[in-house]
């Protein structure tokens, strides 16, 4: 693991000394544990977190151990402080993460073989990366009706993990707030508009950002066959950075160095 300090756009160099899994690294002031870990190449599992959206803290997968802390802080929400000692992996954390992923599989109808998102699904990847090879909990086998009322998109609530990325992207980026959560506990579910069929919600702009950020196959393009959906979660950080004037280095294209001139 290398931890070469990389400058931020604007030239500030990281200056906060932090110990990450036993290695001394320098963090930016105000940087979250997750941002630091990603910058220096330490993987921490996440699901509800998405760069460009507000912090939610619902999936709990990025829980880490911090020396002196009684509870497990969330990497996505906790800013580094000088001399912080962070452990991103431990047998206990691995067990917690495995159980949380297994709970998500038990809750929904995550039949990868029949899912549009198979192959590009963050939940499927989380199972592989965290060693979830079976679900020891009682499967719920939900059967909620699919909302196919929208001309362009489709919603299968049985595949929804309630990460609220769609809720947040629609509210915070698109400004339409088509999505929200209704009911509570295991009755909680995604609703469009005033709990209407999606196709009847006039505030929907058809922008498709909710589909782009969905980590599973819950939100998809109409007519997508199993394995054909490819979400584009990086789109949002790209958009917000563009809005802020700090272009990011989007993986897989659109790479732009800081010293490059930005077209208006």
């Amino acid at each position: 693991m290398t931890a070469a300090p990389t400058p931020r756009p604007g030239g500030a160099r990281p200056s906060v000394p932090v110990t990450l899994d036993g290695t001394d690294v320098l963090a930016h002031e105000g940087e979250t544990i997750l941002a630091l870990a990603r910058r220096v190449g330490v993987p921490i599992p996440t699901l509800c977190q998405l760069d460009g959206l507000s912090v939610y803290g619902g999936c709990r997968l990025c829980s880490v151990e911090v020396a002196g802390e009684h509870r497990l802080p969330l990497a996505c929400a906790t800013e580094v402080v000088p001399e912080m000692e962070v452990r991103t992996t431990s047998p206990t954390l691995a067990n917690h993460r495995r159980r949380i992923v297994a709970l998500l599989f038990a809750e929904g109808s995550h039949v990868c073989a029949a899912c549009v998102a198979s192959g590009a699904c963050e939940l499927q990847d989380l199972a592989s990366e965290n060693g979830v090879d079976h679900i020891s909990y009682e499967m719920t086998f939900p059967r909620t009706p699919v909302d196919a009322s929208h001309p362009k998109f489709i919603l299968d609530r049985d595949r929804c993990v309630l990460c609220t990325r769609c809720v947040r992207v629609c509210d915070e980026i698109e400004g339409a707030h088509v999505w929200d959560i209704a009911q509570r506990g295991n009755q909680a579910h995604l609703i469009a508009g005033m709990d209407q069929p999606w196709g009847e919600v006039s505030s929907c702009t058809w922008c498709g950002k909710c589909v782009a950020v969905c980590p599973t196959g819950a939100l998809a393009w109409q007519g997508t066959a199993p394995g054909e959906l490819h979400a584009d979660p990086g789109l949002i950080a790209f958009l917000t950075d563009a809005r802020d004037g700090t272009w990011d280095d989007r993986a897989g294209g659109n790479e732009r160095r800081d010293d490059e001139e930005v077209a208006p």
């Binding site: 995550h110 990868c112 198979s118 192959g119 499927q124 990366e129 090879d133």
Partner: peptide
């Protein structure tokens, strides 16, 4: 096992 050896779906 490596993560690649554990995977639901295909």
């Amino acid at each position: 096992r490596a993560p690649d050896d554990i995977r639901f779906g295909n």
